[in-house]
Design a protein around this nucleic acid. Structure first.
Length: 151
DNA sequence: GCCAACGTTGGC
DNA sequence: GCCAACGTTGGC
């Protein structure tokens, strides 16, 4: 079972939104970066995912969700009224993918970015690499264990 | 295929 | 609000 991390602005979609959502499921759509999309395609049902809150007051990992539906064409790319609309994408050859994720739990205390940066053994984690902008990334079992051990 | 210009991300 | 870093676009 693979592990992942996704970034989100909590004003858009937070771990609390997962807890409150119908069936506690939210489609993870609107990803418009090829590298991130390729990781979405690799996700399988049951994979666990850290939810990282970015661009906000308390930056860090706030909770855990789980993939409940593996990748499918992101419907927002076809909607002319969506901010995620991509006029170059077609139904026959869709560019962008989404997955469905479900709430697992909120961490009792957020794991702050500073803490993550100071942990030993996370050197390979894209999140803490300088200038990194990847919004969907793999997390190794070892990295997952190290991060959770601090929670 | 190169690369400058531009828009976006995201921490501070 | 600032700005460094990065990805994308488009002219050539």
């Amino acid at each position: 079972m693979a592990k992942w991390l996704v970034k989100t602005e909590p004003s858009e979609c937070s771990i609390d939104d997962f807890a409150k959502a119908e069936n506690q499921i939210i489609p993870w759509d609107g990803v418009r970066n090829y590298q991130a999309r390729n990781f979405l395609k690799e996700m399988s049902e049951g994979d666990e995912v850290f939810v990282y809150h970015s661009s906000c007051r308390h930056i860090g990992i706030a909770g855990i969700v789980r993939v409940v539906k593996s990748s499918y064409p992101d419907p927002t790319q076809f909607r002319a009224d969506s901010p995620y609309h991509d006029p170059k994408s077609t139904r026959e050859n869709p560019r962008w993918q989404a997955v469905d994720m479900a709430f697992v739990r909120k961490l009792e205390r957020l794991i702050p970015l500073d803490g993550i940066k100071s942990m030993q053994g996370l050197e390979g984690l894209p999140l803490i690499r300088r200038g990194n902008r990847l919004s969907v990334m793999p997390v190794t079992e070892e990295q997952w264990r190290i991060i959770l051990a601090s929670a």
